[in-house]
């Protein structure tokens, strides 16, 4: 093989092969297995330990549409987990692009599980100020958010009557593509000893592992891989609880199958992810072999 040629391979050929590696598994799923990681299992356990119809989980949707392929399936899986176990949810957004995504996810899953806005979940919407909002909520959530996303005064919402500050919130999950989980740890964690878990894009996942070791985060869901693991855990839980069986009985075959597909959104992408990684590894190996062979020949 001409190594000189291999070292000067057209980058567009690499793009094409990566595209094919992504497209083919989407068209012809292989069903590669997904193994559970401890940080995701810990997040799941933390959510699962919240008592049904008790204090709510606080879900902070702090990402924009660019991060949706990784974080939206996570959002849906967490909401499904909560609603299938009758855990109440308090949703908000500290990122300016988050409210629309949060509303779309919350209303969709709430409708699917027959949950009532104001009783089973509350959507607070967006508030600018990041750290200042997190600090304010430690004193009084009603002071930080005067109304919910739909302009209803907080005091008039039944679920909010029992919720005043972090003492009434057993767990906060921050879903973010930026450094917002760090702000949650700094202000809600360090100052108010709030239990926090994070769902982040794969780019930033490596940065958050040190916080797992210190228990500043009780759990971490990283990227599409983490989302698929969480999705798998929720699907298994729904089977155990009989939620899936009830759904199968109440829906038509077509509706049920459509729902099943949407409940495996993250897992469906994992085949493409694995194959694309293999192609990249192959290119790294080929590149290195060619480089060292060429260097040896020059000597």
């Amino acid at each position: 093989m001409n190594l000189e040629k291999l070292m000067r391979i057209d980058r567009r050929l690499i793009f094409l092969l990566i595209a094919l590696a992504v497209i083919f598994p989407l068209l012809f799923p292989i069903g590669l297995p997904t193994h559970l990681s401890k940080p995701v299992q810990d997040t799941f356990n933390a959510v699962d330990s919240i008592p049904p119809d008790g204090p709510p989980l606080m879900l902070s949707i702090d990402y924009d549409p660019a991060a949706m392929p990784e974080l939206y399936p996570m959002t849906l899986a967490i909401l499904r987990h909560c609603f299938s176990r009758n855990i109440r949810v308090l949703v908000l957004s500290l990122h300016r692009a988050g409210p629309g995504i949060g509303e779309m996810a919350t209303t969709r899953i709430a409708k699917e599980y027959g949950k009532k806005e104001g009783e089973d979940y509350v959507y607070l919407g967006f508030k600018p100020g990041f750290g200042a909002v997190i600090l304010r909520m430690g004193e009084d959530i009603h002071g930080a958010f005067l109304t919910d996303y739909y302009n209803r005064p907080i005091g008039e919402i039944p679920m909010m009557r029992e919720i005043h500050n972090y003492d009434d919130i057993p767990l906060v999950i921050c879903l973010s593509a930026a450094a917002i989980p760090e702000l949650w740890m700094m202000y809600a964690g360090s100052r108010y000893h709030q239990t926090i878990a994070a769902g982040v894009t794969a780019v930033s996942a490596a940065d958050y592992y040190p916080f797992l070791q210190t228990d500043q985060l009780v759990g971490l869901i990283g990227g599409l891989k983490g989302a698929s693991e969480y999705e798998k855990l929720v699907n298994e839980l729904e089977e155990r609880l009989g939620v899936d069986k009830k759904r199968k009985e109440s829906l038509s075959k077509e509706e049920y199958e459509k729902l099943q597909v949407s409940h495996s959104k993250a897992s469906a992408g994992m085949d493409s992810q694995s194959i694309a990684h293999l192609v990249i590894i192959a290119f790294i190996v080929i590149g290195n072999v060619a480089y060292f062979a060429q260097r040896r020949r020059k000597r």
């Binding site: 990566i18 989407l26 794969a202 891989k225 992408g269 992810q273």
Partner: peptide
């Protein structure tokens, strides 16, 4: 992994 996820999306 993150960039491939975006492409998959």
């Amino acid at each position: 992994m993150a960039r491939i996820s975006l492409l998959i999306g």
